[in-house]
């Protein structure tokens, strides 16, 4: 895409560098310096103050044997896989809106998509917490009323043997280790990301009506249209969201911190690497160690992004 410029020509076009210079300077000073300082401090026993002790690779060797840290990667892996699946509703929603014949409705639905973005996250958090409340919450009330609870109890006693669904005992969604990950996954249902849908819609927009008409003539089913026409067109956008989602979920721990505290909740099942970093830095005051954990996490994110870039190819 980008126009290659040879070294010789670059001398003439040197002022092009000025376009990137301000961003670069800002990023170097305000983002790279703190980040490099974190890398530097990962070789120190450092509590965030001015006293530090050089300890070579001790933080890293300690991290290698840190059971909590490595266990948190399992939770993370499950959550990332779930997040990939949770991208589907947004794609579905985009296709659904796009296929509407009325342009007006398409427009108004786009408007409505933006509205939830304006609502502060704390409101959403409040509603979902209320949803999961064991004795007063909506989820348990629904399960009880619909009789799904009985089904779950039967499933538990006969198949799962988890001993988490019991007759007469409200389900403790966020204080039962085995239920923490499912609860975290269910969180945010139906998992519509407004930005995602809007970006997919932008991608879908380039399909002309004639393509659909041709497909209709061929007697293509909805599914076939999706697979052969729509999905290939939003592949760029899907890939973009996928990368951003993976990077985001590897670093993210806000939800776990708010819901389960910095210990990761019952059985430590909600512990993810980011949360463990936070715990070490701000609960235990081991900033140096937290920096080392961050560096290890960075390597993981780097590797995953590389895999993503290499294997999730876009055919243009």
């Amino acid at each position: 895409m980008a126009q290659p410029i040879s070294n010789r020509k670059a001398l003439h076009e040197w002022q092009l560098y000025l376009f990137v210079l301000p961003s670069l300077l800002l990023v170097l000073v305000f983002a790279y310096y703190p980040a490099l300082s974190a890398i530097y401090h990962s070789f120190f026993d450092w509590t965030g103050g001015d006293f530090k002790q050089f300890i070579r690779f001790e933080n890293f060797t300690r991290a290698l044997g840190d059971k909590t840290f490595w266990a948190s990667f399992i939770t993370l892996a499950i959550l990332v896989v779930a997040n990939v699946v949770k991208m589907i509703p947004s794609i579905f929603m985009a296709v659904l809106i796009h296929r509407l014949t009325s342009d007006r409705w398409q427009y108004w639905y786009r408007v409505l998509l933006v509205v939830p973005m304006i609502v502060p996250g704390l409101v959403t958090l409040f509603i979902w917490k209320f949803f999961y409340d064991p004795s007063l919450g909506l989820l348990n009330a629904t399960l009880d009323a619909t009789g799904i609870k009985t089904l779950l109890v039967a499933l538990d006693t006969n198949v799962l043997q988890w001993n988490v669904f019991r007759e007469g005992v409200p389900i403790a969604w966020l204080s039962e280790p085995l239920l923490i990950i499912p609860s975290l996954i269910l969180w945010g249902f139906p998992w519509i990301g407004a930005v995602g849908v809007l970006i997919y819609l932008a991608g879908l927009q380039s399909i002309g009506t004639e393509v659909y008409e041709a497909a209709d003539l061929d007697g293509a089913s909805s599914w076939q249209k999706f697979v052969y026409i729509e999905f290939p067109l939003i592949m760029t956008q899907v890939r973009l969201s996928l990368i951003l989602m993976i990077i985001g979920s590897l670093k993210d721990f806000g939800l776990q911190l708010l819901l389960l505290g910095d210990g990761g909740g019952a059985g430590g099942r909600g512990m993810v690497p980011g949360l463990w970093m936070y715990n070490r830095a701000f609960t235990a005051g081991e900033f140096g160690y937290a920096c080392a954990l961050g560096l290890i996490l960075f390597v993981f994110i780097l590797a995953l992004t590389w895999v993503n870039n290499t294997y999730v190819r876009v055919e243009k």
Binding site: N7, E13, A281, G294
Partner: peptide, 28 residues
Amino acid sequence: YRMPGSDILFAMFMFLMLMPGVANIVPL
């Protein structure tokens, strides 16, 4: 444009996106 060094510069920006930054707040 693909200026000399632009790959490196771009990578520099991208690396930053991958950095988890919990302990960065003190240096900042």
